[in-house]
Design a protein around this nucleic acid. Structure first.
Lengths: 197, 197
DNA sequence: CCCCATAAGAAACGGATCGTATCTTAATTT
DNA sequence: AAATTAAGATACGATCCGTTTCTTATGGGG
């Protein structure tokens, strides 16, 4: 007897994207084929092509869905602690996904489709750092001088760089980013708080 | 009459790599095929496969050869000027090559083969910054506190990040990297010189 | 100067995957 | 219940892969 059930809409799409994720884990990006995905998802190639014109866009959709954990601003009680926690979160989120997949997608995706992926990688970069800085100011750890956007983007830029170029960063790498780069720079740019330790 | 000339060794290899570069410019990485390269270089596929086991490695060889300009430590008379000149040089060198090609190669190359490519992108990162810092110290622009390696790598890391994620960086981007990040950080870390302005 | 090892270049292959077109039929809409 | 929509199966020509086979130009060694 043949399968007499036909999935549609969201249910079907979810099954497909799960199949993509599985194929990705099993064969890697290069080894992933439309046909392989179709077989695993128990559907057919035309169904895939109706949704995504290219492999890159299909994989991007799966990657975004699989890693759509929301990153939340940490609150550890110190600026350095918050920054480290933030970098650690980004590392964890991206870790589930795979470096070479991300690189390939960044290379192949049309800019429009790359947007959602970049959002995953960046998790709205600047927007995550601002509240951390605000907390530090409230605690008196930092002064009130305004911070240029490039500086607010720097924490995420640095982890992203580390992830893309060297793979999953070590704890030591994250710590040195915070201690050697971010803390000195933020203090220099924002000024010191009213009650220095 | 058939071609009766057969190139060998270096001459042949150069012709092939030039063909790779041309095909790359014309069809992009994805559209480049062994067969296309063979035809353009007026040779045959086995000749290519005898040299490079994968497309990625062949393209890497061509990319490295095409962009083997040596980056030299600039000397503009000021620390900020030198840093800006360095970043500009890196931008120019990498510009000739193509962002999506670099990303794809980073994704596909085995770590061993990636070495030479990374060298191109990095141009021995830290090693280029050290002399610039030394000059600044001699001029009294910077103090003598030792700089951690992460800090020495930072200038190149930041351009590389900019290139990989956003494409060719603008002048304004390079300037803001120098003014907002590098200069304040270097001053804070090395201490100020003996004759502050 | 000739011989010979080496590698260039031509041609053809089986196979995999591509992207599309065709057709039947289940699921949904009206 | 009828009509519309889309799933799923199948098959296609085309392209590129990576390899094999074979001929013959090339350049070095004797």
């Amino acid at each position: 007897m043949t399968k007499t059930t036909r999935r549609r809409g969201e249910a079907l799409e979810q099954a497909i994207l799960e199949a993509v994720t599985a194929e990705l884990a099993e064969h890697g990006y290069a080894g992933l084929t439309f046909e392989g995905v179709a077989v695993r998802a128990e559907t057919s190639k035309p169904v895939l092509y109706r949704r995504w014109p290219t492999k890159a866009e299909m994989v991007a959709a799966a990657t975004v869905r699989a890693n759509s954990t929301t990153i939340v601003s940490p609150d550890t009680g110190s600026l350095a602690g918050d920054l480290l926690a933030l970098l650690d979160q980004v590392r964890t989120v991206v870790d589930a996904s795979d470096r070479s997949v991300l690189l390939t997608l960044m290379a192949e995706l049309p800019p429009s489709a790359a947007e959602s992926l970049r959002e995953l990688l960046v998790a709205r970069g600047t927007q995550l750092v601002q509240p951390i800085v605000d907390h530090a100011r409230q605690r008196g750890e930092l002064g009130d001088a305004p911070l240029p956007s490039r500086l607010l983007a720097l924490p995420i830029d640095l982890v992203r760089h580390e992830i893309l170029v060297t793979g999953t960063p070590s704890d030591a790498a994250l710590r040195s980013i915070v201690d050697v780069i971010l803390m000195p720079l933020l203090r220099a740019a924002a000024g010191h708080g009213q009650r220095p330790g």
